[in-house]
Design a protein around this nucleic acid. Structure first.
Lengths: 176, 176
DNA sequence: AACTGATAGTTCATTACTGAACTATCGGGC
DNA sequence: GCCCGATAGTTCAGTAATGAACTATCAGTT
């Protein structure tokens, strides 16, 4: 259906056309950004489709796996927000769902009573372990054409970008 | 607020911990994927915040700019869907908004009466041109630490990924 | 001990997005 | 000329995500 290959070319042409109308436009950077966002989106979509038959959205799945990856399968909502990149409001909703399905339990922490402890149940653990491998083929296939060096380079590039975003966000915050 | 740097480390530790429980997990690939999605999300968020004061969401903005980038500021909804990565349903809603604000007009095409022609109005063009530069500093800043070679490498990597997603999507389609 | 500013999580109202069904049109084969 | 599968866009009903306000608790100050 998609022919993303053509879309890349079209994207570059499009950006060039815009650059004509806005000369200070940092053309290569904008192309990279659009490609980055586009890639993220289509990959996430792909995952979404894979998970849907099992009744989980990508973000619910992400949350579940972060919980699985936490020591003892236990974490606070705030931690899940960080590592699953979700806003608190949404995390409440998502964990509501997990609890309702019996995949996790929610109990107040006694060291800090503002906090909540989410604990993966045995059922939740089994479910997570069952679902997880469904995505391995995708993950492998996506990077099939990559040499180890290319993967390292991409890793480094993404690290840099994330650090930059961080810096940007904080300067914005001070400005505001 | 965020300290994304620490999150990267935490992410790697988390993936390692999950890998203990699911040995066939393609660890470096999963880390890369998570970083990719995370980067996309936080960058998009950043843009969202920048645009919000002007009454546009990131996806509306994207649509507007694709329209600006189209020859004569004119395009069909389907094309916008492709280049702004949106589903048709959502594109209807988004273009409704653009039309309502007088940024674009919607007229049926006479060569093919199923189709609609969206045409950027002068107001829309001015608006797009005014907003666009707001994001240039971000774009530049994000890639500030990148050499030309690194940018090229990232470009190549993203191209490869997009092609792969394409291939994946079509094999899924035939399977289904 | 009482006060203050910060933090964790939730609730509620609003906005954004999605899938499935539907309408209108197209273009090719008969 | 008519049928047919395919395509473009929309509508509608349901799901997901967000921001702003609120509650409860905490840790440090006086």
């Amino acid at each position: 259906m998609t022919q993303l290959a053509e879309r890349i070319e079209a994207l570059e042409r499009g950006v060039a056309r815009v650059a004509d109308q806005a000369p200070e436009l940092p053309q290569p950077e904008v192309v990279l950004l659009r490609m980055l966002l586009m890639t993220g989106q289509v990959v996430a979509d792909q995952f979404e489709r894979t998970l849907k038959p099992h009744g989980l959205s990508e973000s619910e799945f992400r949350t579940l796996i972060v919980l699985l990856s936490s020591p003892q399968g236990r974490a606070h909502p705030g931690e899940l927000c960080q590592f699953a990149t979700q806003k608190p409001t949404n995390m409440t909703r998502i964990t509501d769902g997990l609890v309702r399905r019996g995949l996790a339990t929610r109990t107040p922490s006694d060291s800090d009573r503002r906090r909540i402890v989410l604990q993966l149940t045995p059922v939740g653990r089994r479910f997570a372990r069952k679902l997880l491998p469904l995505l391995f083929p995708h993950a492998r296939a996506l990077f099939a054409g990559f040499s180890a060096a290319e993967k390292r380079a991409l890793h480094r590039a993404l690290c840099k970008l994330l650090l930059r975003v961080d810096a940007l966000a904080s300067t914005d915050a001070t400005k505001a």
